[in-house]
C-alpha cells in the first residue's frame, strides 16, 4: 500500500495486552501535535474493538486499520 502521508510516531505494543496498546496510543496523542498521525501495533483482539471506539469517542480520526500477519496497525490523526 502506498501512503501519501507520514506517520509521526509508531508504537509497537505487540508484547502488550488490552488495554496496553490503547494506552500507548492515548499517551502519544496526549503529548502529540494536532494534525500529526500516530500509529500503534497490537496483537490483542480487544484492541480491534476498543481502539476505533476510543478514536470515535475522543473525536480523532482513524486514518487506516491495516491487517498484517498476526497483528494490526492502527493509524490515528490527532484532530484537536
Amino acid at each position: 500500500m502506498i501512503q501519501d502521508y507520514t506517520v509521526e510516531k509508531v508504537m509497537d505494543a505487540r508484547n502488550s495486552f488490552c488495554p496496553g496498546p490503547l494506552m500507548e496510543l492515548i499517551k502519544s496523542i496526549k503529548k502529540g501535535e494536532v494534525d500529526k498521525i500516530y500509529e500503534v501495533w497490537s496483537k490483542d483482539g480487544g484492541s480491534i474493538r476498543d481502539i476505533p471506539k476510543w478514536v470515535d469517542k475522543a473525536k480523532h480520526e482513524m486514518v487506516a486499520v491495516i491487517e498484517e500477519n498476526g497483528y494490526t496497525r492502527f493509524q490515528v490523526r490527532k484532530t484537536r
Binding site: F17, C18, P19, L22, M23, I26, G46, R49, D50, K53, W54
Partner: peptide
C-alpha cells in the same frame, strides 16, 4: 474508567 469497560479482562 479510562478503558472501554470497567475492567480490562473481557
Amino acid at each position: 474508567s479510562p478503558i472501554g469497560g470497567a475492567f480490562s479482562i473481557e
